[in-house]
Design a protein around this nucleic acid. Sequence first.
DNA 1: GGCATTAAGACC
DNA 2: GTCTTAATGCCC
Length: 725
Amino acid sequence: MSIVKVALPVPKRQLFDYLSNGLEVPVGGRVRVSFANRTLVGVVMAHTDDSPWADKLKAVSEVLDEAPVLDEHWLTLARWLADYYLHPIGDVIHTLLPVALRKGASALPQDTECLALTPTGQQHCQDDLRRAPQQWRLIARLKDGPVALHTLREDISSAVIRACRDKGLVETTLQAYAVQSDWHAALTISDKPRPNTEQALAISAITRDLEAYTPVLLEGVTGSGKTEVYLQSIEAILKAGRQVLILVPEIGLTPQTVQRFQRRFGIDVGVLHSNLNDNQRLRVWQQARSGELGIVIGTRSAIFTPLAKPGMIIVDEEHDGSFKQQDGLRYHARDFAVVRAKMEGVPLILGTATPSLETLNNALQGRYQHLTLHARAGVATHTVQQVMDIKDQPLRVGIAPGLIERMRSHFAAGQQVMLFINRRGYAPALLCHHCGHIETCHRCERPFTVHKQLNKIQCHHCSAARPLPRQCGACGNDEIVPKGVGTEQLDAELASIFPHISRVRIDSDSVRGKSTLEEVLAAINEGRHQLLIGTQILSKGHHFPNVTLVVIVDADGALFSADFRAAEHLAQLITQLSGRAGRADKPGEMWLQTHHPGHPLLQDLLHNGYGHFARFALQERKAAGLPPFQYQVLIRAEATDARSPFAFLDELATLLRQQTDFQVLGPVPALMEKRQGRYRVQLLLQSTRRGVIQAWLATNMATFERLPSVRKVRWSIDVDPQDFM
DNA sequence: GGCATTAAGACC
DNA sequence: GTCTTAATGCCC
């Protein structure tokens, strides 16, 4: 009997057998099968002759691929992901494929819709369209032949296209699939600066052997020329006819970043970001896989892009938290990049000014080569970091009087000031001055955030919102006051302190969509705003050369957090922010407001820099028995009632405590005990040997799934958890 | 995960 | 007794 074992997108840790009935079904190819009264798309993992289900086997209903969509290499990677992250194989396969392929779309290159000139259009010259320059721009673009509609859409509005079509100047045609397939021949290197000694050293270390796994931690502050090292290393790979995959944090994928690569090499760059549609993603996937793209750049999930001739992987801002997937297959794109580079035998660059302690430790242990770039002379000088003791100070919107004065003098000198506060909205709570009641979201048991402009209160953990109350919800008193400070309030209050200064607020409320952020950033660097007030967004990838004063309004929160990584993240934030400001002729200053000016962590960071701080923090982690010296696996469970998650995890803990190879801590409530109406509990497993935990869980998974208490909860396994929220 | 079957409330 | 909703079980 010819039977196929199929991975299906169901949360079951098994494959399902189907009869192939003589159909030609390659391993790694997709099939459509009927499963529990519906049709699903699955991937064939293996062929076999017999099955324990022999009597009730169904037949494959349709073969979707003649050739595999996942080759042996990718099936191996899929199995690695399933084993390492203890995640069902069917769901792993599902996440590896572009959405269009999950839905059953053809994996073969499709004809692309193009726009071509009609004979009338051919006749038209610039004079005929004197009054319609945009339409002329389109006609000019098409003079050399048809151009794909999706490419045109990037810089020509649909109204212009429609107008030309209505005039009979252009028409849509179907063109056979053909991209710049020979990018290797088109490769041209333009405006290459001469690398300094450190850069040259780094480039040669990275490209010493193009066919070997060469992992490198490239540690370089802003202005040290890290990107130039990327570019010249990429050059060597491209010249050898191999492809490069670049991962960047969610916020770092700007048109400027992409253009920089495009300009240097004169070839198309495949871009994968969050607002592409399914077909656009599929196209990049196909082009990368067939080798038609020399460079692919994208966010987290881009690490799953197959390459015909893999040449190098770069993870930029390696420390960034957005590389960790927080649901489903909880992979870390940086960690998977390491595994992939090793398996494909290619160089790997992990670049950052502030390495994560995990990566730094790997470098110190000699698992990665550690290359450091110092700031180039005359490019960027060190921002002076200082602590502002705010104990007993009369604060105005949380800012010390001394800093208000410093702001004034920077404004007077015609320079820009940046205020960083990690809270959006007007205030993080609404308090009744009469009875002390705080308006709280019942689904998350956390205070509502006040949004004054929008005239509402909103929960930042579940986005539930209500109109701004006029009276206390408990006692009815109308003296209710916002408590604490958020970006909106800072903005409003600073308007009265500095009425003649142009302010701009940068948080996810004020900058809707990507283009607005780009516009705001451009306006800032054109000097149209003097005061920048914002959240995390400010620390990610954007440089503000005219900002000479940076104030971190509240540095205390992270110093005493329950999350052991909070200090590391604060240090990264401080270092990143100070790298974003100032330039050679206008050095910047940074102030950290705190009630604990003598805190050893702050003192170490400020006096000795991130590198010293990180090594000290590593020692602390070692002493405390924390990652990266101990490996962790977190088992989470949640339910609408408070008891079920505990009941389940208690049973699990009892089972797990039968062994002595690793520690079992908990169960304890999550840092946010209730979220979106669900009670959340977790069980932490810890060991110096990660494999021991993974192996034990893998062999006992079936037992866990048979526990009666499992039925009442939603649960998941998080290998190498990044946060305990 | 999603659907169908079954058990259990709610109402007359 | 019926109609609706929540809990449970199973997919090759």
